[in-house]
Nucleic acid binder design. Structure first.
Length: 107
DNA sequence: CTGTTGACTGTCG
DNA sequence: GCGACAGCCAACA
């Protein structure tokens, strides 16, 4: 049992995000412990394993805040569009529609 | 070992 | 309505 259970949850939930759906740092962090821990989610995703769809995780407003850590700039957006998600100006349009909340979906 | 930073969010002012 | 501060945990210098 590691103390980094937080990271474990982040990785788990992140991979549990269904295709064509996106999640937010606050939702994941809140599902784990506190919504303030959203920074930890970003930190966990900073290691960004290849099996981690970090591109499905965005800020609460649907802004691709994490795309700056990706190889390029349009990479994250391209991946989201590939899933069927509509993105405009680094922001998810039908965000509330593609939004996937672990606290509600996983319950 | 101590201090700061970090892909954020919410509340106070 | 906009601006600044606080909080969570882990890793890096």
């Amino acid at each position: 049992m590691k103390n980094s259970f937080f990271f474990q949850k982040v990785y788990d939930v992140c991979q549990l995000i269904p295709e064509g759906r996106v999640s937010t740092y606050g939702a994941i962090s809140k599902y784990i412990s506190s919504p303030q821990a959203a920074r930890m989610v970003g930190w966990a995703l900073n290691k960004c394993p290849e099996n981690m769809p970090a591109h499905r995780v965005v800020s609460k407003r649907g802004l691709l805040t994490g795309k700056i850590h990706f190889s390029g700039i349009n990479l994250m957006q391209q991946l989201l569009e590939n899933e069927g998600i509509v993105v405009k100006e680094n922001q998810i349009q039908n965000f509330k529609i593609v939004f996937w909340d672990p606290t509600k979906e996983l319950t």
